[in-house]
Simulated scan of single mutants.
Amino acid sequence: MSVSIDVTSVTADQYLFAPSPLAELGSALHLLVEPAHHQTQNGWVTAATAGIAPDLMDRILVADYLWRTSRSDMLLPAAPQPTLAAELDVLDALDDEAWVRDALMTSSCGVVPLRDDLASPLVDDVARKIARDRAGARGPRALEFVDQILARPGAARSWIRRLLEDCDSGFFAEAWTRVASRLAADARHKHDLLERHGLEAMLAAVSPALTLTAAGDRIVVDKLQDRTTSASGRGLTFLPSTFSHPHLLVVHAAGRRPVLNYPIPPGLEEPTVSVADIQNRLHALDHPLRLRLIRSILRAPQTTAQLADAWTVSAPEVSRHLAVLKNAGIVTTTRRGRYVLYEIDIARSARLGTDLIEALLR
């Protein structure tokens, strides 16, 4: 499962690396309404929430359809600008149909299926029904918010711009001042990597969840969804973020320049684990005998013969199950003389739950 981006005819100068104040504000708003997704940012969330005026927080919650469960595509600009005001001006230049489409028919998170064959909900009855159904599934407040956008797009656009401006003055400007230079430095670093070492090296530095196919024609994003898009003729934008971990967002709407919004880890962290690796570990745990073997090995390193005696099964059967556990990285082996002892990789096994959640949120 992955998002695949065709880069067959994309030249080096068509890859854009730049921080986006609008994208970072979108990540900050998501943090405020979904703090459980971002345990490493609890300190910032607590401090920011304490300083936000109650009226502003109420309005953030009213509009959270745009940044809670999925991130609105309009919050992830393909052509980032140096200031939030400039990026909001770009949004203002969109006509109502394009603005409503980018606001309501999101592609970046992959939470809901994307329909490439639909126009804007303002003019397409099927798209309108889908937008309202998705909002209704989130509750009456979300449905009322979406209905206001559909009924009075001009007024809704002005209201949302004012909300984002008030968020900027209320809490985000200070945060942006603190992180902007770091984001700009990371963007320059990724650009230099691309120029000096090529696309594959740059992707590896952006995220272990990004790989280049052997043919060099597609970027593969390791996410729990199956989508394809093309950067040919459009190019590809990379937006670094200090607030988005563990999310790796990909705007892949039809006809749009793809955008990758990637997290910069706040410090030394465990490497990103692939979906396939997590599936492998879960499969290794789905047999009762393998769980019994793990139980024994946790208490002390064991040989195949010891495990066979303990659970009254044949040595070949134990060996077969141990091979599955070893292949999944749950057990390791050490040799003592002529004996091979099996041990549990406790640190890696203990991260399974965290790795699973991060992969699902990615």
Rank of each mutant, 00 (worst) to 15 (best):
T242G: 01
L75D: 10
V340K: 09
R182D: 11
V324C: 04
A284E: 09
W44V: 14
A98G: 02
V331Q: 06
D186E: 12
D147Y: 02
L32E: 12
I130L: 14
D95R: 03
Q41N: 14
H245W: 06
E343H: 12
F243I: 03
D124A: 07
M105S: 03
V111F: 04
L285W: 05
E174H: 11
A185C: 02
P240F: 00
D116M: 00
S9E: 12
L212H: 07
C109S: 15
R299Q: 13
C109A: 09
L298C: 08
K129V: 03
I219G: 04
I278H: 11
V273G: 03
L114I: 14
S232L: 04
A151T: 15
R115T: 08
S244T: 13
E269L: 11
D73S: 12
P301R: 03
R257M: 05
V324S: 11
S72W: 06
P271H: 09
W67E: 05
R234K: 14
F243R: 06
K326T: 14
L31A: 13
K129H: 10
T69P: 00
G337Q: 03
R336T: 13
R299M: 10
I278F: 07
D222C: 11
V275A: 12
I149E: 06
I160N: 04
A310V: 01
L25V: 05
G198S: 06
D277R: 15
S9D: 12
S314Y: 02
T303L: 08
A215D: 15
Q81P: 08
K223P: 03
T177Q: 09
T354Q: 14
L164E: 07
L118V: 10
H37V: 00
R161A: 05
Q225E: 15
R292W: 03
A284R: 04
R138G: 12
D13C: 02
S9I: 03
A253P: 05
P208D: 08
N280G: 09
D192L: 10
I294P: 05
H321G: 01
E34K: 15
L199V: 07
T303M: 04
P77N: 10
